[in-house]
Simulated assay, not measured.
Amino acid sequence: MNLMRPDHPYFDAPFAALAHRGFSLDGLENSMAAFQAAVDLGYSYVETDGHGTVDGVAVALHDASLDRTTDAEGDVADLPWSRVKEARIGGVEPVPLLEDVLGTWPELRVNIDVKAESGIVPIADAIERTGAHDRVCVASFSAERRRATVARLSRPVATSAGTSEAARFLVGGLARLGTLRSLTDVDGLQIPWRVGPVPVLNERHVRLAHDLGKVVHVWTVNARTEMETLLDAGIDGIVSDRADLLRDVLRSRGLW
């Protein structure tokens, strides 16, 4: 574990075990039932995604459209909340308001991936209304979306690097170049364990990030052997669909 950590309450826990879109083995991702299942397992961190409806309501949903995960169709950004709230994840669970995810479990730390420009204002508004600043990390593949969301907030939240920032850091780390510039306005990196069959992270990256006072979270890790490898490398958090398995691995190491 790194000794110099970002100065934000989101990172107070010694290790961030993040339940990816909550926890469901039945395809109910990003539902209130999935988030409750993660809480019931003992999780204090969950990962979710945010989109905005055409009338400015933030919902917790990964895809731009309702087609894959619900019994409805259409792009969230083109639909009013009155339509989106009728959709059922897996045919049974409603699409939740992001505000409900933030407000239902007052101690739960929530990593929010801002998926589209339409979500920027609604997501910021949901954080403001719930006063969840101390337990939110705002992330996005787009650094511009992250910055635009954070700029609308009245208090600091935790932040994670976008794809281009993370790529510059990873390439620079391999080349032994100074890479502080790419991470100046974020608290950490959330990066994939692999791109295709190729691992993208090594212990040198982790050490460099820690030297810069940044945390390293890795997604989406669902196999015990990969969890063990990453823990041996000294990372600070794992995002997993298998919250049950990750809990067992962390318990075995005294990190739960």
Results as ranks from 00 to 15, higher is better:
Asn2Ser: 13
Arg5Tyr: 10
Phe11Met: 01
Pro14Glu: 06
Pro14Ile: 04
Phe15Tyr: 11
Ala19Phe: 00
His20Cys: 05
His20Asp: 07
Phe23His: 13
Ser24Gly: 02
Leu25Met: 09
Asp26Tyr: 10
Ser31Thr: 11
Ala33Pro: 00
Ala34His: 04
Ala34Arg: 00
Ala38Ile: 08
Ser44Asn: 03
Glu47His: 01
Thr48Gln: 00
Val54Gly: 04
Gly56Asp: 07
Ala58Gln: 04
Val59Ser: 11
His62Val: 04
Ala64Gln: 10
Ser65Pro: 07
Asp67Pro: 01
Asp67Glu: 12
Asp75Phe: 15
Ser82His: 03
Ala87Glu: 07
Gly91Ser: 09
Pro96Lys: 05
Pro96Val: 08
Thr104Arg: 15
Leu108Asp: 03
Arg109Asn: 14
Val110Thr: 12
Ile112Phe: 11
Ile112Asn: 10
Lys115Gly: 11
Glu117Ala: 14
Ser118Met: 06
Ser118Asp: 15
Gly119Asn: 07
Pro122Ala: 06
Ile123Val: 14
Ile123Asn: 05
Thr130Met: 00
Ala132Gly: 02
Arg135Gln: 06
Ala143Lys: 00
Arg146Ser: 09
Arg147Ala: 11
Arg147Trp: 02
Ala148Asp: 14
Val150Lys: 06
Val150Gly: 02
Ala151Glu: 14
Arg152Ser: 04
Pro156Ile: 09
Pro156Phe: 10
Val157Ala: 06
Val157Arg: 01
Ser160Ala: 15
Ala166Glu: 07
Phe169Asn: 05
Arg176Trp: 08
Leu189Met: 13
Ile191Pro: 00
Pro192Asp: 10
Gly196Thr: 09
Pro199Leu: 07
Leu208Asn: 06
His210Arg: 06
Gly213Ala: 03
Trp219Pro: 01
Asn222Pro: 05
Ala223Cys: 02
Ala223Val: 12
Glu226Arg: 09
Glu228Phe: 05
Asp232Phe: 02
Ala233Ile: 01
Ala233His: 10
Ser240Asn: 03
Ser240Ala: 13
Val249Tyr: 04
Ser252His: 02
Leu255Thr: 08
Trp256Gly: 01
